[in-house]
Nucleic acid binder design. Structure first.
Length: 433
DNA sequence: TATCCACAGGAAATCAGGGTGT
DNA sequence: ACACCCTGATTTCCTGTGGATA
């Protein structure tokens, strides 16, 4: 968006892009989905998973089990690593590995359809329309026929998300019972969860089947371990001598402060490299890492806000507008409801929502860290959430501007704020808090 | 001390939009 | 054309709640 003031010169851009100093040899190595030759500091976990899954080599059924650990502790990478090594063994019937990202495939139907389509490779199950039990039976048939007497691993990544949404127990129950309904094929479930207390909310029947084996727990990496990981990847990703000595240590230290998330550490290193390259530097320096740190933070928030549903963005707009025109105003859920309603009536194609719905969106914004909400009781004035924005107003405005439906209302002064009654009441709130 | 405000947030129902096979 | 399926967003209905006020 440059409003035509500074037309983007694409010729110049490509030219400088090609003339930029060569920093990256293979940028993919910094991607969190990249599987390196060696996985540093995960020997124990690799051994345990290998032990649990090895019987597939002899055609026996491995047990179901769970992997726990925060984001960026290498759960998915380790599973993929082991599966790759297992596949390299020379045996007749290589096991199947089917990855299911429960964040993307959140309903029983979708998961069954995904498994089916992955195995069949062609015969597509439509994204909706059929009854679940029909798909389940079709899947059973396909497993016996195409997978035959080999083992099929079903890896459920982010399995904890499944439970939050309804139907989580249903699909897990179906999957854990697959073997009972199969004649030849055998399946084995591997659940990957970010939440440690995840299996408490499971159906007892599922729990007994999934939790029989002791879970494998992935602990966060410390700064030294992160440094080792980065070092390995950097060898592949960067040309020699383009990284200043302390760059990797700095990335590791910054990420270690952030829960030891390896994914973040990799992103940091990559971003630092990009910043150096874009600013025509031949070497990545510490200052690039600090810049990258700031920028990543903003990028994440911006990306998240852009990805929110339209109504959620309008809820955010409501908060933004109140903040903009009355920074000292104490915002309650009711206020957001009122201003959202004002906006909904002005923006074409937007429905006014109920308070119940607004409440859910406010919770969503809170969980993502964009706002914070305190439940406070104001006595005679009821019990409600006091909401404040946690993100820079400039960033919010910049992001909301990108939405064409919202763009034109970023200078709209809510009628709510023009009512003396409301303002007087708000002054009472200030004293109560 | 009883009352009452302004919600919080769970559960179930409903709606619209995408499909199915017959 | 028809009866029926699945999903995601939303509404409807509901019970619960902390503390200033009368």
């Amino acid at each position: 968006m440059n409003n035509g003031k500074n037309p983007f010169n694409i010729e110049k851009f490509y030219k400088s892009y090609l003339n930029a100093p060569k920093i990256f040899k293979n940028q993919n190595a910094l991607d969190s989905t990249y599987i390196p030759e060696e996985l540093p500091h995960r020997d124990n976990e690799i051994r345990m998973i290998a032990e649990k899954t090895a019987c597939a080599l002899r055609g026996d059924t491995p047990p179901n089990f769970l992997c726990y650990g925060r984001t960026g502790t290498g759960k998915t990478a380790t599973i993929r690593y082991v599966s790759q090594k297992l596949a390299q063994q020379i045996i007749k019937n290589k096991p199947w590995w089917i990855y299911i990202n429960c964040n993307l495939l959140s309903t029983p139907y979708r998961i069954l359809a995904h498994i089916y389509n992955t195995i069949s490779g062609k015969e597509r199950i439509p994204p909706t329309g059929l009854p679940k039990d029909v798909i389940f039976k079709k899947l059973l048939g396909l497993l016996d026929q195409k997978v035959g007497s080999t083992i099929c691993f079903l890896v459920l990544d982010e399995i904890d998300l499944l439970i939050e949404k309804t139907g989580g127990n249903e699909i897990l129950y179906l999957l854990t019972r697959l073997n009972e309904n199969l004649d030849y094929c055998r399946t084995s479930l591997i659940g990957i969860s970010n939440k440690l207390k995840f299996n408490q909310s499971l159906d007892p029947r599922v729990q007994s089947s999934l939790g029989k084996e002791p879970p494998i727990v992935f602990h966060p990496y410390n700064a030294k371990q992160l440094g080792d990981i980065l070092m390995e990847r950097a060898k592949v990703a960067f040309y020699d001598n383009v990284l200043n000595d302390d760059v990797i240590h700095l990335c590791a230290a910054l990420a270690a402060k952030d829960d030891g998330d390896a994914r973040k550490a990799l992103q940091l290193l990559r971003k630092a490299g990009e910043i150096a390259a874009n600013s025509q530097h031949k070497v990545v320096k510490e200052k690039h890492v600090y810049e990258a740190h700031d920028e990543l933070e903003k990028d994440h928030v911006e990306e998240y806000m852009l990805g929110m549903p339209l109504q959620a963005q309008i809820v955010l707009t409501a908060i933004f507008l109140i903040n903009k025109f009355k920074p000292e105003y104490i915002i309650t859920s009711g206020d957001i409801y009122e201003v959202h309603s004002e906006l909904a009536n002005k923006i074409s194609g937007i429905k006014q929502l109920t308070k119940r719905m607004i409440s859910d969106y406010v919770n969503e914004l809170t969980l993502s860290g964009i706002i914070s909400a305190d439940i406070r009781s104001l006595g005679y004035y009821g019990r409600t959430k006091i909401i404040s924005l946690d993100v820079d107003m400039v960033l919010v405005e910049k992001t909301l501007k990108q939405n064409e439906k919202i763009r034109n209302f970023l200078n709209y002064k809510p009628i709510l704020l023009q009512s003396d009654k409301v303002l007087i009441k708000n002054n009472i709130f200030k004293k109560l808090i």
